[in-house]
């Protein structure tokens, strides 16, 4: 029991003073935060405030100019993206580009083929097709329905988002970073995708969500970090953070 409580409180990801400039643009400036296991952290901010760059810094797609990123106590600053993914950090992309020619379930073969999954399943791959179909069912593809077999390029938007989520599940990630997962979804689609994220939280996963749809985000997030011009200007409970004047100003502009 004691051990379990320790585990839930443990810092899983620690971002310390990371900065990144592209040419003259300071995309991320000295951002720091700690993330505990089981938290759902929202990262919000106006367009161009550096949210996606921050995710790219954590997942290795962009190397920071300064600062460090630690995952489970291990310094992963400047690692290649595939090494970071193998530790159990999965992410989705803002611009979703599925493996268009492949049927939906075959898209999951790629994460299922990763060395991480092989190690976790005891060194064997087994029948990946059936594992893939199970995963799709978990994210709300109807079992043996035609969408499962449809080319991913022709899937409706809602299903594409679910497919992205399923890729994270396939990797058996502990930390899942969702870059604007809710964007472009209808209310009905959201209503079916939110429970999947809630289920992840129950399973003890840690989630970071970059979102513009604040109302939906605040219903599930325990904590938010607000970025503005690359600076983290606020960090705290959603209700408290949104009361702050500087946050309102960043969102609504100066009067």
């Amino acid at each position: 029991m004691n051990e379990a409580t320790n585990k839930t409180n443990e810092v899983i990801l620690s971002v310390q003073e990371v900065s990144k400039s592209f040419g003259g643009v300071r995309a991320v400036v000295g951002v720091s935060f700690d993330l505990r296991r089981g938290e759902l952290l929202g990262i919000i901010g106006p367009n161009g405030s550096g949210k996606t760059t921050l995710v790219n810094l954590i997942t290795g797609f962009v190397k920071p100019d300064s600062g460090s990123v630690k995952y489970e106590g291990q310094d992963i600053t400047g690692w290649m993206p595939y090494r970071i993914a193998r530790l159990g950090i999965a992410r989705t992309f803002q611009m979703i580009r599925p493996f268009a020619e492949l049927p939906a379930f075959k898209n999951l073969i790629i994460p299922l083929f990763s060395p991480r999954v092989k190690t976790l399943s005891g060194g064997k791959y087994g029948d990946l097709d059936s594992v893939a179909k199970d995963l799709l069912e978990e994210v709300g593809f109807e079992r043996e329905s035609s969408v499962t077999y449809k080319a991913a390029g022709s899937l409706p938007h809602g299903y594409l988002k679910r497919l992205e989520l399923a890729k994270c599940l396939a990797l058996r990630a502990d930390l899942i970073i969702l870059d604007e997962l809710f964007s472009g979804l209808s209310i009905a689609e959201l209503a079916s995708i939110v429970p999947i994220i809630e289920k992840l939280m129950v399973e003890g996963k840690t989630v970071i969500m970059i979102e513009h749809r604040l109302r939906e985000l605040f219903r599930i997030a325990n904590r938010v970090v607000v970025l503005n011009y690359g600076h983290a200007i606020a960090d705290g409970k959603p209700s408290e953070v949104m009361e702050r004047d500087d946050v309102k100003q960043a969102y609504l502009g100066t009067e």
């Binding site: 992410r91 060395p115 990946l128």
Partner: peptide
């Protein structure tokens, strides 16, 4: 499965990398 991963690199190499595969 091996061939699918190879072909996926052409489609979207970033997505393959975030699946923990050394492209």
């Amino acid at each position: 499965d091996y061939g699918l991963v190879l072909k996926a690199i052409k489609d979207n190499d970033r997505s393959v990398m975030s699946a923990g595969i050394n492209i």
